[in-house]
Nucleic acid binder design. Structure first.
Lengths: 187, 187
DNA sequence: GTCTATAGGGAGATAGAC
DNA sequence: GTCTATCTCCCTATAGAC
Protein backbone atom coordinates (compact mmCIF):
# COMPACT_ATOMS: atom_id res chain seq x y z
CA UNK A 1 0.00 0.00 0.00
CA UNK A 2 1.27 3.49 -0.76
CA UNK A 3 2.40 5.79 1.98
CA UNK A 4 -0.48 8.26 1.64
CA UNK A 5 -2.99 5.47 1.98
CA UNK A 6 -1.23 4.03 5.02
CA UNK A 7 -1.14 7.45 6.64
CA UNK A 8 -4.86 8.00 6.14
CA UNK A 9 -5.87 4.58 7.40
CA UNK A 10 -3.60 4.82 10.43
CA UNK A 11 -5.06 8.21 11.24
CA UNK A 12 -8.59 6.80 10.96
CA UNK A 13 -7.69 4.09 13.46
CA UNK A 14 -6.01 6.44 15.91
CA UNK A 15 -8.82 8.99 15.68
CA UNK A 16 -11.23 6.20 16.48
CA UNK A 17 -9.25 4.99 19.47
CA UNK A 18 -7.85 8.15 20.95
CA UNK A 19 -9.57 11.10 19.29
CA UNK A 20 -7.93 14.13 17.73
CA UNK A 21 -6.41 15.67 20.84
CA UNK A 22 -5.08 12.29 21.91
CA UNK A 23 -3.44 11.50 18.58
CA UNK A 24 0.05 12.82 17.87
CA UNK A 25 1.81 13.05 14.50
CA UNK A 26 4.48 10.78 15.90
CA UNK A 27 1.94 8.11 16.75
CA UNK A 28 0.52 8.32 13.24
CA UNK A 29 3.95 7.92 11.71
CA UNK A 30 4.67 4.90 13.86
CA UNK A 31 1.36 3.26 12.98
CA UNK A 32 1.78 4.01 9.27
CA UNK A 33 5.44 3.03 9.30
CA UNK A 34 6.26 6.38 7.71
CA UNK A 35 8.92 8.90 8.62
CA UNK A 36 8.48 12.45 9.85
CA UNK A 37 9.58 13.95 6.55
CA UNK A 38 7.36 11.60 4.64
CA UNK A 39 4.25 12.60 6.50
CA UNK A 40 4.92 16.32 6.18
CA UNK A 41 5.70 15.89 2.50
CA UNK A 42 2.24 14.51 1.78
CA UNK A 43 0.24 16.54 4.30
CA UNK A 44 0.61 20.03 5.68
CA UNK A 45 0.17 18.73 9.21
CA UNK A 46 -2.02 16.90 11.68
CA UNK A 47 -5.16 18.87 10.83
CA UNK A 48 -5.10 18.20 7.10
CA UNK A 49 -4.40 14.54 7.66
CA UNK A 50 -7.25 14.32 10.12
CA UNK A 51 -9.54 15.98 7.62
CA UNK A 52 -8.76 13.32 5.03
CA UNK A 53 -9.24 10.55 7.59
CA UNK A 54 -12.56 11.88 8.88
CA UNK A 55 -13.91 12.39 5.37
CA UNK A 56 -12.93 8.84 4.51
CA UNK A 57 -14.64 7.45 7.59
CA UNK A 58 -17.76 9.41 6.71
CA UNK A 59 -17.88 7.91 3.22
CA UNK A 60 -17.41 4.43 4.63
CA UNK A 61 -20.15 4.90 7.22
CA UNK A 62 -22.62 5.99 4.56
CA UNK A 63 -21.81 3.08 2.30
CA UNK A 64 -22.20 0.59 5.14
CA UNK A 65 -25.57 2.06 6.17
CA UNK A 66 -26.88 2.25 2.63
CA UNK A 67 -26.42 -1.50 2.31
CA UNK A 68 -29.21 -2.04 4.81
CA UNK A 69 -31.42 0.84 3.74
CA UNK A 70 -31.44 -0.16 0.09
CA UNK A 71 -32.23 -3.81 0.78
CA UNK A 72 -35.63 -5.51 0.47
CA UNK A 73 -38.38 -5.59 3.07
CA UNK A 74 -40.61 -3.26 5.03
CA UNK A 75 -39.33 -0.08 6.65
CA UNK A 76 -39.14 -1.69 10.08
CA UNK A 77 -37.31 -4.67 8.62
CA UNK A 78 -34.69 -2.47 6.98
CA UNK A 79 -34.30 -0.26 10.04
CA UNK A 80 -33.98 -3.33 12.24
CA UNK A 81 -31.34 -4.80 9.97
CA UNK A 82 -29.44 -1.54 10.19
CA UNK A 83 -29.70 -1.40 13.97
CA UNK A 84 -28.81 -5.04 14.50
CA UNK A 85 -25.99 -5.11 12.01
CA UNK A 86 -22.71 -6.59 13.26
CA UNK A 87 -20.83 -3.79 14.97
CA UNK A 88 -17.74 -3.44 17.07
CA UNK A 89 -19.97 -1.90 19.73
CA UNK A 90 -17.46 -1.34 22.53
CA UNK A 91 -15.17 0.54 20.17
CA UNK A 92 -17.88 3.13 19.66
CA UNK A 93 -18.70 5.15 16.55
CA UNK A 94 -15.75 6.50 14.59
CA UNK A 95 -17.67 9.60 13.63
CA UNK A 96 -19.75 10.11 16.75
CA UNK A 97 -16.76 10.08 19.11
CA UNK A 98 -15.29 13.11 17.31
CA UNK A 99 -18.20 15.08 18.63
CA UNK A 100 -16.50 15.06 22.03
CA UNK A 101 -13.31 16.54 20.57
CA UNK A 102 -13.33 20.32 21.05
CA UNK A 103 -10.52 20.86 18.54
CA UNK A 104 -12.51 19.01 15.88
CA UNK A 105 -15.73 20.89 16.63
CA UNK A 106 -13.88 24.22 16.60
CA UNK A 107 -12.37 23.71 13.14
CA UNK A 108 -14.99 23.99 10.35
CA UNK A 109 -12.82 21.87 8.06
CA UNK A 110 -12.85 19.01 10.54
CA UNK A 111 -16.36 19.46 11.78
CA UNK A 112 -18.18 19.56 8.47
CA UNK A 113 -17.60 15.92 7.47
CA UNK A 114 -18.97 14.91 10.89
CA UNK A 115 -21.97 17.19 10.50
CA UNK A 116 -22.60 16.09 6.91
CA UNK A 117 -22.47 12.42 7.80
CA UNK A 118 -25.11 12.67 10.49
CA UNK A 119 -27.28 14.94 8.35
CA UNK A 120 -27.18 12.35 5.59
CA UNK A 121 -27.96 9.54 8.03
CA UNK A 122 -30.97 11.32 9.50
CA UNK A 123 -32.20 12.27 6.06
CA UNK A 124 -31.86 8.75 4.73
CA UNK A 125 -33.60 7.25 7.77
CA UNK A 126 -36.41 9.78 7.36
CA UNK A 127 -36.90 8.59 3.77
CA UNK A 128 -37.21 5.00 4.92
CA UNK A 129 -39.74 6.00 7.58
CA UNK A 130 -41.68 8.04 5.02
CA UNK A 131 -41.79 5.00 2.75
CA UNK A 132 -43.21 3.04 5.68
CA UNK A 133 -45.95 5.64 6.09
CA UNK A 134 -46.85 5.56 2.42
CA UNK A 135 -47.04 1.76 2.54
CA UNK A 136 -49.48 1.97 5.46
CA UNK A 137 -46.95 0.35 7.77
CA UNK A 138 -46.79 3.38 10.06
CA UNK A 139 -49.70 5.53 11.22
CA UNK A 140 -50.02 9.16 10.15
CA UNK A 141 -48.97 10.27 13.65
CA UNK A 142 -45.39 9.12 12.99
CA UNK A 143 -43.13 12.02 12.00
CA UNK A 144 -40.29 10.84 9.71
CA UNK A 145 -37.73 13.43 10.79
CA UNK A 146 -38.40 12.93 14.47
CA UNK A 147 -38.33 9.18 14.20
CA UNK A 148 -35.16 9.28 12.14
CA UNK A 149 -33.46 11.38 14.80
CA UNK A 150 -34.64 8.96 17.46
CA UNK A 151 -33.20 5.97 15.61
CA UNK A 152 -29.85 7.68 15.02
CA UNK A 153 -29.76 8.79 18.64
CA UNK A 154 -30.41 5.29 19.98
CA UNK A 155 -27.41 4.08 18.00
CA UNK A 156 -25.08 6.84 19.12
CA UNK A 157 -26.34 6.72 22.69
CA UNK A 158 -26.12 2.95 22.68
CA UNK A 159 -22.43 3.25 21.90
CA UNK A 160 -21.97 5.67 24.80
CA UNK A 161 -23.72 3.36 27.27
CA UNK A 162 -21.79 0.36 25.97
CA UNK A 163 -18.46 2.08 26.38
CA UNK A 164 -19.33 3.17 29.89
CA UNK A 165 -20.25 -0.40 30.78
CA UNK A 166 -17.37 -1.89 28.77
CA UNK A 167 -19.91 -4.29 27.34
CA UNK A 168 -22.21 -4.42 24.30
CA UNK A 169 -25.17 -5.25 26.52
CA UNK A 170 -26.64 -1.75 27.01
CA UNK A 171 -26.36 -1.14 23.27
CA UNK A 172 -28.27 -4.31 22.51
CA UNK A 173 -30.91 -3.55 25.14
CA UNK A 174 -31.43 -0.06 23.73
CA UNK A 175 -31.78 -1.37 20.18
CA UNK A 176 -34.25 -4.08 21.14
CA UNK A 177 -36.20 -1.58 23.19
CA UNK A 178 -36.50 0.72 20.19
CA UNK A 179 -37.45 -2.04 17.76
CA UNK A 180 -40.11 -3.13 20.23
CA UNK A 181 -41.55 0.39 20.28
CA UNK A 182 -41.66 0.74 16.50
CA UNK A 183 -45.08 0.05 14.93
CA UNK A 184 -45.23 -3.01 12.71
CA UNK A 185 -42.71 -4.86 14.80
CA UNK A 186 -42.48 -8.38 13.39
CA UNK A 187 -42.44 -10.35 16.64
CA UNK B 1 -15.04 29.38 48.27
CA UNK B 2 -12.14 27.25 49.49
CA UNK B 3 -9.33 26.24 47.21
CA UNK B 4 -10.23 22.55 47.15
CA UNK B 5 -13.77 23.36 46.12
CA UNK B 6 -12.63 25.75 43.40
CA UNK B 7 -10.24 23.14 42.06
CA UNK B 8 -12.94 20.49 41.85
CA UNK B 9 -15.47 22.73 40.19
CA UNK B 10 -12.96 24.08 37.70
CA UNK B 11 -11.97 20.53 36.83
CA UNK B 12 -15.61 19.60 36.33
CA UNK B 13 -16.00 22.47 33.87
CA UNK B 14 -12.81 21.71 31.95
CA UNK B 15 -13.57 18.00 31.81
CA UNK B 16 -16.95 18.87 30.34
CA UNK B 17 -15.50 21.22 27.73
CA UNK B 18 -12.25 19.58 26.78
CA UNK B 19 -12.21 16.08 28.24
CA UNK B 20 -9.47 14.49 30.31
CA UNK B 21 -6.75 14.33 27.68
CA UNK B 22 -7.47 17.91 26.66
CA UNK B 23 -7.31 19.28 30.20
CA UNK B 24 -3.94 20.23 31.69
CA UNK B 25 -3.12 20.86 35.35
CA UNK B 26 -2.04 24.34 34.35
CA UNK B 27 -5.46 25.07 32.82
CA UNK B 28 -7.14 23.84 36.00
CA UNK B 29 -4.97 26.07 38.15
CA UNK B 30 -5.74 29.07 35.98
CA UNK B 31 -9.48 28.41 36.09
CA UNK B 32 -9.45 27.81 39.83
CA UNK B 33 -7.13 30.73 40.48
CA UNK B 34 -4.83 28.40 42.41
CA UNK B 35 -1.09 27.97 42.21
CA UNK B 36 0.87 24.93 41.14
CA UNK B 37 1.97 24.12 44.67
CA UNK B 38 -1.54 24.61 45.96
CA UNK B 39 -3.03 22.09 43.59
CA UNK B 40 -0.38 19.46 44.28
CA UNK B 41 -0.74 20.02 47.99
CA UNK B 42 -4.42 19.08 47.94
CA UNK B 43 -4.32 16.43 45.21
CA UNK B 44 -1.71 13.91 44.16
CA UNK B 45 -2.12 14.93 40.54
CA UNK B 46 -4.42 15.29 37.58
CA UNK B 47 -5.90 11.81 37.91
CA UNK B 48 -6.98 12.15 41.52
CA UNK B 49 -8.46 15.56 40.88
CA UNK B 50 -10.35 14.23 37.89
CA UNK B 51 -11.67 11.39 40.00
CA UNK B 52 -13.13 13.82 42.50
CA UNK B 53 -14.61 15.95 39.72
CA UNK B 54 -16.19 13.02 37.88
CA UNK B 55 -17.64 11.58 41.09
CA UNK B 56 -19.12 14.98 41.90
CA UNK B 57 -20.67 15.30 38.45
CA UNK B 58 -22.16 11.84 38.80
CA UNK B 59 -23.82 12.74 42.09
CA UNK B 60 -25.20 15.94 40.60
CA UNK B 61 -26.55 14.12 37.55
CA UNK B 62 -28.40 11.64 39.73
CA UNK B 63 -29.91 14.32 41.91
CA UNK B 64 -31.11 16.29 38.90
CA UNK B 65 -32.69 13.22 37.31
CA UNK B 66 -34.32 12.06 40.52
CA UNK B 67 -36.21 15.35 40.68
CA UNK B 68 -38.22 14.33 37.64
CA UNK B 69 -38.50 10.63 38.43
CA UNK B 70 -39.82 11.18 41.94
CA UNK B 71 -42.43 13.73 40.85
CA UNK B 72 -46.16 13.09 40.39
CA UNK B 73 -47.85 11.74 37.29
CA UNK B 74 -47.86 8.68 35.07
CA UNK B 75 -44.68 6.94 33.95
CA UNK B 76 -44.78 8.60 30.51
CA UNK B 77 -45.37 11.98 32.13
CA UNK B 78 -42.36 11.61 34.40
CA UNK B 79 -40.15 10.25 31.63
CA UNK B 80 -41.24 13.06 29.34
CA UNK B 81 -40.48 15.65 32.00
CA UNK B 82 -37.03 14.13 32.37
CA UNK B 83 -36.40 14.11 28.64
CA UNK B 84 -37.72 17.60 28.06
CA UNK B 85 -36.04 19.17 31.04
CA UNK B 86 -34.06 22.32 30.36
CA UNK B 87 -30.61 21.27 29.27
CA UNK B 88 -27.56 22.93 27.83
CA UNK B 89 -27.87 20.56 24.90
CA UNK B 90 -25.02 21.73 22.69
CA UNK B 91 -22.59 21.39 25.57
CA UNK B 92 -23.31 17.68 25.70
CA UNK B 93 -23.41 15.38 28.71
CA UNK B 94 -20.71 15.88 31.32
CA UNK B 95 -20.59 12.18 32.07
CA UNK B 96 -21.29 10.77 28.63
CA UNK B 97 -18.49 12.69 26.94
CA UNK B 98 -15.91 10.99 29.18
CA UNK B 99 -16.78 7.77 27.44
CA UNK B 100 -14.78 9.01 24.45
CA UNK B 101 -11.72 9.57 26.59
CA UNK B 102 -9.41 6.55 26.38
CA UNK B 103 -7.40 7.59 29.44
CA UNK B 104 -10.58 7.75 31.51
CA UNK B 105 -11.86 4.40 30.27
CA UNK B 106 -8.45 2.79 30.88
CA UNK B 107 -8.27 3.85 34.54
CA UNK B 108 -10.72 1.90 36.76
CA UNK B 109 -10.72 4.73 39.31
CA UNK B 110 -11.91 7.20 36.67
CA UNK B 111 -14.17 4.85 34.78
CA UNK B 112 -16.19 3.49 37.67
CA UNK B 113 -18.07 6.72 38.53
CA UNK B 114 -19.05 6.96 34.86
CA UNK B 115 -20.17 3.34 34.77
CA UNK B 116 -22.01 3.63 38.08
CA UNK B 117 -23.89 6.73 37.02
CA UNK B 118 -25.28 5.16 33.85
CA UNK B 119 -26.09 1.93 35.66
CA UNK B 120 -28.07 3.88 38.22
CA UNK B 121 -29.83 5.87 35.50
CA UNK B 122 -30.88 2.78 33.58
CA UNK B 123 -31.99 1.06 36.76
CA UNK B 124 -34.03 4.02 37.90
CA UNK B 125 -35.67 4.42 34.50
CA UNK B 126 -36.48 0.71 34.49
CA UNK B 127 -38.27 1.15 37.82
CA UNK B 128 -40.38 3.95 36.41
CA UNK B 129 -41.26 1.85 33.36
CA UNK B 130 -42.11 -1.11 35.61
CA UNK B 131 -44.43 1.13 37.61
CA UNK B 132 -46.10 2.08 34.33
CA UNK B 133 -46.66 -1.58 33.55
CA UNK B 134 -48.15 -2.28 36.96
CA UNK B 135 -50.48 0.69 36.55
CA UNK B 136 -51.70 -0.71 33.23
CA UNK B 137 -50.20 2.23 31.37
CA UNK B 138 -47.85 0.02 29.37
CA UNK B 139 -48.66 -3.35 27.80
CA UNK B 140 -46.99 -6.55 29.01
CA UNK B 141 -44.83 -6.60 25.88
CA UNK B 142 -42.81 -3.65 27.16
CA UNK B 143 -39.54 -4.71 28.76
CA UNK B 144 -38.46 -2.26 31.49
CA UNK B 145 -34.71 -2.79 31.12
CA UNK B 146 -34.79 -2.54 27.35
CA UNK B 147 -36.98 0.52 27.37
CA UNK B 148 -34.83 2.16 30.04
CA UNK B 149 -31.73 1.61 27.91
CA UNK B 150 -33.55 3.07 24.91
CA UNK B 151 -34.52 6.20 26.82
CA UNK B 152 -31.01 6.74 28.17
CA UNK B 153 -29.56 6.12 24.71
CA UNK B 154 -31.86 8.66 23.06
CA UNK B 155 -30.58 11.26 25.50
CA UNK B 156 -26.93 10.46 25.05
CA UNK B 157 -27.27 10.06 21.30
CA UNK B 158 -29.31 13.24 21.10
CA UNK B 159 -26.38 15.09 22.63
CA UNK B 160 -24.03 13.59 20.05
CA UNK B 161 -26.26 14.60 17.14
CA UNK B 162 -26.75 18.07 18.59
CA UNK B 163 -23.05 18.65 18.97
CA UNK B 164 -22.39 17.49 15.42
CA UNK B 165 -25.04 19.90 14.15
CA UNK B 166 -24.02 22.65 16.57
CA UNK B 167 -27.73 23.02 17.32
CA UNK B 168 -30.20 21.59 19.82
CA UNK B 169 -32.58 20.66 17.01
CA UNK B 170 -31.60 17.01 16.47
CA UNK B 171 -31.77 16.43 20.23
CA UNK B 172 -35.27 17.85 20.36
CA UNK B 173 -36.38 15.87 17.34
CA UNK B 174 -35.03 12.65 18.83
CA UNK B 175 -36.77 13.27 22.15
CA UNK B 176 -40.10 14.10 20.55
CA UNK B 177 -39.78 11.06 18.31
CA UNK B 178 -39.27 8.84 21.33
CA UNK B 179 -42.11 10.35 23.35
CA UNK B 180 -44.34 9.84 20.34
CA UNK B 181 -43.42 6.15 20.23
CA UNK B 182 -44.07 5.56 23.93
CA UNK B 183 -47.46 4.02 24.75
CA UNK B 184 -49.82 6.26 26.65
CA UNK B 185 -48.52 9.38 24.99
CA UNK B 186 -50.62 12.27 26.22
CA UNK B 187 -51.07 14.16 22.96
C1' DG C 1 -1.02 26.01 52.60
C1' DT C 2 1.14 28.46 48.84
C1' DC C 3 5.10 30.02 46.02
C1' DT C 4 8.94 29.62 42.67
C1' DA C 5 12.48 26.89 40.46
C1' DT C 6 13.56 23.09 37.90
C1' DA C 7 13.36 18.99 34.97
C1' DG C 8 12.57 15.18 31.67
C1' DG C 9 9.70 14.24 28.01
C1' DG C 10 6.48 14.79 24.17
C1' DA C 11 3.81 17.73 20.79
C1' DG C 12 3.94 19.82 16.39
C1' DA C 13 6.48 21.60 12.95
C1' DT C 14 10.58 23.44 9.96
C1' DA C 15 15.06 22.94 7.35
C1' DG C 16 18.04 21.09 4.52
C1' DA C 17 20.63 16.95 3.11
C1' DC C 18 20.25 12.82 0.28
C1' DG D 1 9.96 11.12 -1.60
C1' DT D 2 12.30 10.19 2.64
C1' DC D 3 15.70 11.02 6.35
C1' DT D 4 17.85 13.33 10.32
C1' DA D 5 18.67 17.46 13.00
C1' DT D 6 16.77 21.07 15.36
C1' DC D 7 13.45 24.24 17.58
C1' DT D 8 9.91 26.13 20.61
C1' DC D 9 6.42 25.34 23.64
C1' DC D 10 3.65 22.83 26.78
C1' DC D 11 2.70 18.70 29.81
C1' DT D 12 3.06 16.71 34.39
C1' DA D 13 5.34 16.53 38.34
C1' DT D 14 8.98 17.17 42.14
C1' DA D 15 11.74 19.98 45.47
C1' DG D 16 12.39 23.02 48.75
C1' DA D 17 11.79 27.78 50.39
C1' DC D 18 8.50 30.79 52.82
Amino acid sequence: METVERLIRSTQELLWERGYVGTSPKAIQRAADAGQGSMYHHFSGKAQLAKAAIARSGVELRAAAEEQFAGPGTATERITRYLERDRDVVRGCRIGRLTADPDVMADPELRSPVDETFRWLRGRLAEVVAEGKRAGEYPATIDPEQTAATIAAVLQGGYVLAQAADSPEPFELAVRGLVNLLPGDAE
